[in-house]
């Protein structure tokens, strides 16, 4: 890992620690008491899991644009698309899990089929199906097929997001921009913002790591293929003719 990445990682940990501290010292909530503190963990994950799909969609567009123009950049865009889809699934899973725990404690049920939960589950399903398609599609087509699917999924997300205004909902109205009777006490705002920043930084770190790993895998498989062709010392060991045979 380069030095700046390590420094970034350290900074992220510090911000996360401060976010945790801010969440724990924020004032008690009027009706739910300390129970509501899961909110500082739940909200950043759910909001950010609506951001990563658009990174995925943008990378997929770039992939389709570069596909026949610049193979190297196209491969990078594809790796980024994969990484952002995986982070989407990770953050959405955490959002769903914390939401269910909170729902069980606050409403008495694990799962209510209300609008927001259903559409959020739909977001999770969309990106799980994206990852499954990446796994199941034929080699050589994976990138194109998944890029197209990513565009479809990203178009589906706003329909998902808008539905909050179309259905009757049990979920508290949107925290930001939900009209009257929504929103949070001003004293809690700093804790929310610190946690948002912390998890955004953490998500970006994971995304970068996953991207680097996928790029390495791509380079390795390219080297592997070139190794078979015999004009490149692709892999250390194996697949190369012994010096005596090669003259």
């Amino acid at each position: 890992m380069p030095k700046w990445a390590l420094a970034y990682f350290g900074l992220t940990l510090i911000v996360m620690a401060y976010g945790f501290y801010a969440a724990m010292v924020a004032p008690k909530e009027a009706t739910m008491g300390n129970l509501y503190r899961v909110f500082f963990y739940h909200l950043p994950h759910t909001i950010l899991s609506f951001v990563f799909p658009y990174l995925n969609c943008a990378a997929s567009f770039l992939y389709l644009y570069w596909r026949n123009r610049n193979v190297e950049r196209a491969a990078a865009a594809d790796a980024f698309a994969l990484a952002s889809a995986e982070i989407t699934v990770l953050y959405a899973s955490i959002g769903l899990a914390t939401g269910m725990l909170w729902g069980r404690a606050a409403w008495g049920i694990w799962w209510a089929w209300d609008a927001r939960m259903t559409t959020y589950l739909l977001l999770w399903l969309l990106y799980v199906s994206y990852l499954l398609v990446r796994r199941l599609s034929a080699t050589g087509q994976t990138a194109v097929i998944s890029a197209v699917l990513a565009i479809f999924a990203a178009i589906d997300v706003p329909i998902c997001f808008m539905s909050i205004r179309w259905w009757r909902t049990q979920h508290p109205s949107a925290v930001f921009g939900g009209g009257d009777n929504s929103g949070i006490d001003p004293t809690m705002v700093p804790a929310v913002l610190w946690n948002m920043l912390a998890f955004a930084m953490w998500g970006a770190f994971l995304l970068g790591m996953r991207y680097a790993i996928e790029r390495r895998r791509q380079r390795q498989s390219n080297a592997h293929a070139l190794g078979f062709l015999g004009d490149e010392p692709g892999l250390s060991g194996g697949f190369r003719a012994a010096p005596s045979e090669a003259r």
Partner: peptide, 17 residues
């Protein structure tokens, strides 16, 4: 794709929800 019979519902159902 390798198993298209399985893949179609996996993709179609979430998108057309």
């Amino acid at each position: 794709s390798r198993n298209r019979e399985t893949l179609l519902p996996l993709v179609l159902l979430p998108i057309s929800m």
